[in-house]
Each structure stands twice: as C-alpha cells, then as structure tokens.
C-alpha cells in the first residue's frame, strides 16, 4: 500500500482471481470498494455495523464482514465475492439446492449466506440441522424463516459426503 495523501492510498489486491490496483479513500470499507469501485454488486450492505452478514466476503480464505474491514486493509489480499464463487463453480451444487428448495426469497442475504455455508461445506465434516443453524446464525434472513436454508445446506452436505 502506498499512501498518496492523508486521505487516499493505492492498494493492489486480487479480486476473484484478477489483480486490481486502485486508489481508495482510506476510510472506505471493503464492500463500498467492491460495490462502488469494482461494480461487484453481489455483496450487499444490510447494516454496516457487522451484524447482519449480508456483506460477507472471503478474504485470504476466511469469510469476513466486508463492512468491518477497510479497503486499505485488503492491500495484498486475495478476495473472493459471490461473483467469483459463482464463476469458480465451487458452490454450484449449493446454489442449485438453494433454487430447488426456494431457500431464498428477496435474495438480499443470499450471497452472504452462501459464503458462510460454503465455509461449512468446505470443512468436509457432517453437521446436524442444529449445527447448521448454529453455523449460519451470523447471517440474518428476514424472508425464509431459515428452515429452507437449513434444508438446502443439509442436502448439499449429504450429497457431498455421499460423493
């Protein structure tokens, strides 16, 4: 990272496999950067204080709240958003199950929910409905009541474990 002035800095990071260099305001949070500068509008802002999880993105392999991290903190990082996750087909089965089970309504929480669920699936361990519910509790959904989301994650987990 290069500080240009007091207010701006130049950062370079990898977003969905592409190397990007941008001058950002040092106070800009990561999702405003992704949405505004890179037009990756799949990550959503539901609260901007780290509660709802709609802005969840993967940074350095870990799911983080994109609203609680500054863009300048992502200098040098590998970032994956829902757009990249989709293109990589890493969770194509999960996405298919979300659609088939109608595990989303308005869809605003869905990218974040998929990000978190992908982390659970990647662990490769079986999980009960209770454990799935626990794992997803940092991501609010106001539409579905969660039941269908748990169904979709459970089905994907089962399919993967059965290979």
């Amino acid at each position: 990272m290069t500080m240009n002035t007091e207010d701006t800095a130049e950062i370079t990071c990898t977003v969905n496999g592409e190397r990007v260099t941008r001058t950002v305001r040092v106070r800009q949070h990561l999702v405003d950067f992704l949405r505004g500068e890179l037009q990756l509008t799949g990550s959503h802002l539901g609260c901007e204080h780290g509660i709802c999880g709609a802005c969840s993105v993967r940074v350095g392999g870990v799911v983080v709240r994109g609203c609680l991290m500054l863009a300048v903190q992502a200098d040098g990082a590998e970032i994956v958003t829902i757009e990249g996750l989709t293109d990589s087909e890493e969770v194509a089965d999960l996405q298919e199950n979300f659609v088939a089970r109608n595990a989303l309504q308005c869809g605003f929480c869905t990218p974040g929910m998929l990000m978190t669920a992908a982390e659970l699936l990647a662990s490769g361990r079986p999980a009960s409905r209770e454990q799935i519910r626990e794992f997803l509790s940092g991501n609010f959904c106001r539409c579905t009541g969660y039941h269908a989301i748990v169904d979709a994650v459970e089905a994907t987990l089962r399919q993967r474990l059965e290979g």
């Binding site: 509008t41 799949g42 757009e83 989709t86 996405q95 088939a100 308005c106 869809g107 869905t110």
Partner: peptide, 19 residues
C-alpha cells in the same frame, strides 16, 4: 416450480435499487 429470480440472486446478479 422454481423461481428464475432466485436463480439470478444466488449468483449475486440480483439488481436492487442501489445496484
């Protein structure tokens, strides 16, 4: 039947007003 809007949303391609 499943929803085409859902298919779009899971890919992060929903278009909300801020988008």
């Amino acid at each position: 039947l499943t929803r085409s809007r859902a298919r779009r949303a899971v890919a992060g391609r929903g278009q909300y007003t801020d988008d």
